[in-house]
Design a protein around this nucleic acid. Structure first.
Lengths: 147, 147
DNA sequence: TCATAAAGTGTCACAAAGTGTCATTTGGAG
DNA sequence: CTCCAAATGACACTTTGTGACACTTTATGA
């Protein structure tokens, strides 16, 4: 399970060091894709391939399905580590997430989110309030169930 | 699996460089055919031959089948690489997809789509919005299922 | 048949992008 | 405080894509 958050820098060539902790959990690298919130999402192979199976099952004749399939695969890239534990983010993904120098790597359960630092801070501000979050827990009925 | 997107130019003779990444996955070249969305689709041999088998199984007596069969085969060419990793797109395919100079090569799972840059941008605009796509994911019930 | 044009092919050299390596810096653990 | 691993920045090197040009093959018409 990916947990916690890390601040890392991207070098001039677009390479990003993955926290060693995350590397251990995804030794072959990540499938990195555009997220829904001007960020990137990195999935370990198993997780991504399950989603890909769902996508592959869609109709080829339905234009909506074709568009979804196209967006799904074309916005993803498979990346593995160099000798220093870095991945190279292609330009189109960096631009999509407005990533230039510093970013926040966020453990997110079965995946890792990658945010431009500035955007992360904005996002965090929106979601920071204790009230907001306890409200959410309530809405989704989340508890420890006394385990 | 073909993933990601690349901008490449076609030279005056209609030659297009295939990303090295894609070449590795389809070392003998591609079967290139007209797509359904004013684009071209390039299939590796295995994928195309599977489709061809299905087509070959169709009735010879049914005029509809004959027409489908004709369209399927006549709109496809088999292309391999020159010494510089390029394929030569025949004029009728370039025209069908309105490809002149710059195009977008799009990884699409088991195949590669080839778009005229202008048309890709239009397509992308239609499908780019986070809302559009998260809506689609919801509609098709795609999730990581917490794996 | 031959000359000419058009289309297709091979090769090279350059610039840009990607990759590997290593020394230095940083930060945490013992 | 010292040690160690992780992250970073710098640099050299390799690969890729591109444009240019020359050559070959095919088609066309006199």
């Amino acid at each position: 399970m990916f947990l916690g958050q890390f601040d890392h820098n991207i070098d001039a060539k677009g390479r990003l060091t993955i926290p060693s902790n995350f590397r251990e959990q995804a030794p072959e690298g990540f499938f990195v894709t555009k997220g829904f919130d001007t960020n990137l999402i990195a999935y370990p192979r198993e997780v991504y391939t399950h989603m890909a199976e769902d996508i592959n099952a869609l109709s080829v004749t339905d234009p909506e399905s074709r568009a979804l399939r196209r967006m799904f695969f074309s916005n993803t890239v498979e990346l593995s580590y160099d000798g220093a534990g870095r991945i190279l983010l292609p330009a189109f993904l960096r631009e999509a997430a407005q990533i230039t120098t510093t970013c926040k790597l966020v453990g997110n359960g079965d995946n890792v989110e990658i945010w431009a630092m500035e955007l992360w801070q904005v996002e965090n501000q929106k979601n920071g309030g204790a009230d907001t979050n306890s409200g959410r827990w309530a809405a989704y009925n989340i508890s420890t169930r006394g385990r």
